[in-house]
Write a protein that binds this DNA or RNA. Structure first.
Lengths: 140, 140
DNA sequence: TCATGTGTTACAGTTAATGTAACATATATT
DNA sequence: AATATATGTTACATTAACTGTAACACATGA
């Protein structure tokens, strides 16, 4: 999954959990309601459990549930929790250093620019909570 | 090529043209100095010729040269010129609309967010000129 | 006329993404 | 204690995307 797909799939699951918080929800149930593959959901939610965004209980009638109210869950921490390799695929060709230093200098320039963009994106995500997403996507 | 790779490769070529502006430079020559494949360079530079960032002359002793001084070439127009499918790979899963409207609402939310991010990125690129990149990557 | 260079297409080889299945581990429930 | 249920993780086959290179028609300066 691309970073953006993982993020939106995670949020779909978290929105479902927020709207069905009376009891733990299994990956099968979440999959049925969101359309996201149950195995992928388990991977995403396992990552989110590590950073205490959700809690899990195993066994019968177990499943996933939010560890905090939606107001205290930020998009940025979701993104950082599920994304290991980091960065929005802003790569630069791996120039062999036998070439002139000009190409290498341009590579360095863009790596710096792209990391600045990355910071900007995360700053923007830090201003968005699960609660605000719930409100923006409310159907009624 | 990913969007970011195309961008950095384009800038490598444009920097070379800016620093060797006495005569048209062939894709073979640019390739030799930048390490970027000549065929890919021709594709990139053909796109940049369409938006009048470079000019080309065919035939013997022909090649590519900047159509404007580096001060008047912006990173944003380079990016828009070479990128057809647009967007930094910020995709959202193509949910089948038979599912509940919640997943679709989250998709719509992220498409909007990602397009906002796209605008932010382009705004940042609009402030950067080829001249500023030449200065930042100068080796002497 | 001919060598040179662009613009474009095609293609094989490689890499990455995708969806699914499988299973060990853990734990409520009966 | 036994069992059904659920997570966490790994593996895999299929598909899609990327990569580098080659090839060639078209154009043009020498």
């Amino acid at each position: 999954m691309s970073a953006s797909t993982k993020l939106s799939n995670s949020v779909k699951a978290l929105c479902f959990l927020a709207r069905n918080s009376s009891e733990p929800q299994s990956s099968a149930t979440i999959s049925h309601h969101t359309g996201v593959n149950a195995s992928k959901l388990r991977k995403l939610l396992a990552d989110l459990a590590k950073i205490k965004v959700v809690n899990t209980t195993k066994g019968a009638s177990g499943g996933y549930f939010l560890a905090r109210p939606p107001e205290k869950i930020h998009l940025q921490e979701i993104y950082c929790g599920i994304e290991d390799r980091k960065a929005f695929h802003l790569d630069v060709t791996h120039t062999d250093l036998t070439k002139s230093g000009e190409a290498a200098a341009v590579n360095a320039y863009f790596l710096k620019l792209f990391s600045e963009i990355q910071v900007d994106i995360e700053d923007k995500m830090r201003t968005l909570t699960l609660a605000s997403i719930l409100e923006a996507t409310a159907s009624n």
